[in-house]
Computed example of a mutant assay.
Amino acid sequence: MTHPYYSGLGGHPGQDRLLTDRATFTESYAFIPRGAMRDIVASALPFWEQTRAFVLARPLSGFAETFSQYIMEVGPGGGSDRPDDDSEAEAILFVVEGGGVLTIDGALHRLSPGSYVYLPPETRWSLRNDRDAPLKFHWFRKAYQAVDGIDRPEVLVTSDAAVSPSAMPGCEGVWETSRFVDPTDMRHDMHVNIVTFYPGGMIPFCETHVMEHGLFVLQGKGVYCLNKDWVEVEAGDFMWLRAFCPQACYAGGAEPFRYLLYKDVNRHMPLRINAR
C-alpha cells in the first residue's frame, strides 16, 4: 500500500493572518504545528549545498536529552559530501518527498519517498539530489551508546513499503506499527517506527514510560493527549515528549492517522547527570 507523507515546508504568512496558533512549549512536551515551519526559522548546516534544515528537536538540559531531529530540504543539484563531522553520531534518514542518490562506503543507493536508512557511527556517506525537484527527508541524530560485548549495528537501507506492519494485540486491526529493525536487537539504542491508526483506532490508556519521543504526523489527523492536555493534531505537526510524559491518542477523519516515532531503547538508565 502506498501512503502519502506530509512534506509542506516554508513560505511566509501574509500580514492579514492572526498571530494566534497552536505552538506550545511546556515542562513536559513541545508541540510545533506545521504552520510554524516557515522560511524564517530554517537553518543552514556546514558543508550542505542548496540545502536548508528545519530543526524540530535538539538536546536541551532539563528537557529531552537523547536526540536531534531535522527536516532537510535539498534543492536540485544540492547535497553534501561531508554531511556530519561528529564521528560518534548515528543517523536515521526517512524520505518524504523527491529523491536522490545516497553513497555509503562507495555503494550507491537510490532514495525515494518512504526510503529508510540507518547509518552507524563512523559511516562514510554522502547525499546528492540529482532530480529537478526538492528532496525532503527527516534526519535523526543520536550519540551512539556502545556496550562492551555488543557489536554496533550495520548499515540498513530499506523502505516503508518493504516492511510488513505488526498489529497491536487485541486492537482488531485498527492499530499497527511498522518496525524497521528487530526490537530485540540489542545493538540498536534507538528506534524510528511508523505507527498507524485506522479510523476508530486509539491508544486506550495513558502511556507513561522512560522513552522520550519525537513524533511527526505523516498523514491524517487525530487528537493527542500530552500530559494533561488534549491537542488536535494533523499531518505536518510535530510533538516532542519528555520521558514519562503521559500520552494517548485517537484517530480522526476518514483516512489513516500515521506518524513517524522516535524513541531511545535498549540501554541502562544513566545514574549520573551528563553521563549519557
Rank of each mutant, 00 (worst) to 15 (best):
R131I: 06
A89K: 01
H109S: 08
A91G: 13
R124T: 14
E122A: 14
G100Y: 03
E88R: 15
S115L: 07
L127K: 13
R131V: 05
F137C: 04
R82I: 13
L102V: 02
N129Y: 02
H138W: 13
A91E: 15
G99R: 05
D130A: 14
R110L: 13
S80A: 10
R141Q: 05
F137A: 00
D132W: 03
N129E: 03
A133P: 04
Y116W: 14
R124A: 15
W139H: 10
L119G: 00
G106K: 11
L127D: 10
E122R: 15
H138T: 07
Q145W: 07
W125G: 00
V96I: 14
E88C: 09
L127G: 10
Y118W: 13
D132L: 13
V95A: 01
G79L: 03
E122W: 09
Q145R: 14
G99P: 04
Y144D: 01
P83H: 08
G106F: 01
I92H: 10
S126F: 07
T123P: 06
Y144P: 03
R110T: 15
P113W: 03
F137P: 02
A133L: 07
E88H: 13
R110M: 11
D105H: 11
K142C: 03
F94T: 12
Y144F: 14
S115F: 01
G99V: 09
L119I: 04
F137S: 02
P113I: 01
Q145A: 12
R131C: 09
G106Y: 09
G79H: 07
E88F: 11
L108F: 08
N129V: 06
V117K: 04
V95T: 12
E90T: 07
P113E: 03
L111P: 00
S126N: 10
Y116Q: 14
L135P: 08
A107V: 15
A91F: 03
L119R: 02
D86I: 12
G114Y: 04
L135V: 08
H109T: 02
V95W: 00
G106A: 07
D132C: 06
Y144H: 15
Y144T: 00
F137I: 00
G99C: 07
L102H: 01
I104A: 06
A91V: 05
S80H: 05
T103F: 10
L127M: 14
S80P: 10
T123E: 07
G98N: 05
R131A: 11
P121M: 07
G99S: 09
G114W: 06
Y116F: 15
